[in-house]
Amino acid sequence: MEVFLSSLVSVAFHGIAYGMILYVISVGLSVTMGLMGFVNLAHGAFAMAGGYVLTSAISRFGLSFPLALALAFIAVAAASVLLERWLYSRLYDAGELEQVLFTIGLIFMAVAAAQVTFGMLQRPVLLPDYLKGQISVLGRDFPAYRVFLIAVSSAMIAALWFGVERTLWGAMVRAAVDNRAMAQSIGINTRRLFTLTFALGSGLAGLGGALGAEIIAIQPTYPFEHLAYFLIVVAVGGLGSLRGPFAAALLIGVSDTACKYWLPQFGAFFIYVATIFLLLWRPAGLFGRRV
């Protein structure tokens, strides 16, 4: 019983850490899909890029871990502005198929570019000493890195929610998600709003990829392999919502960890099956706003 309880706590802890990362990576996808109606399958590439920025910044340029994290956010956000202006924006009015194909193309390119630049092997993360040990919480030892990860993610999420609910930018985003034409007609510059929001979402993905590099290994096939999970978070959580994907990410993080811990022989089978049934039950996601 004691052993079971202990593994229960451990699964919950690791599951929450994993869920937090999934959320930080996927929230941008939810917002861009809800706001711009853009099916961006290449979102995982931004997360992967963040991971590579972090590992290279530490191992090649000797940056400290927190600085490297910040750099991952900034570099990915900056790069995404260029991509959005040059490429994505051309397809805002195109059909779903075009967007799907275009972003699959970006995935292929990102995977190949990562292979050429960084090789096939996964990149190890050089953690600073203060994140390597264990931290004792309530008489129980937890890996310091994951505690750090949960803390940073929580701070980011709090900042994001505050930003969306309390700032003018947030109000404009919510207005534009609700009704784009109306937002435009009251003078919101949706063009700039899209770019900013896209950059923020991509930056967060980069940060999430960097922060979670220990959990979701950084390797060239990253955007392919984890795409399904990011999409599940968004689809199950509900498009354009902030809180829905959060609940969905935690749900998926914990249940995926639990499945892989107790039923490793089934792999991700249950997650996919559960997703299928959940989407049948509620096609617009758990917290989707469409009737």
Binding site: V39, V234, G267, A268, L279
Partner: peptide, 28 residues
């Protein structure tokens, strides 16, 4: 019968999930 009742992202997601389930079964 399932996916054709849905649209957009949900439909995409379902097709992807079904393919992923098949892969998991073949894998395991």
């Amino acid at each position: 019968a399932v996916i054709l009742r849905t649209h957009g992202l949900t439909q995409l997601m379902l097709t992807l999930a079904i393919a992923a389930v098949c892969l998991e079964i073949a894998h395991k």
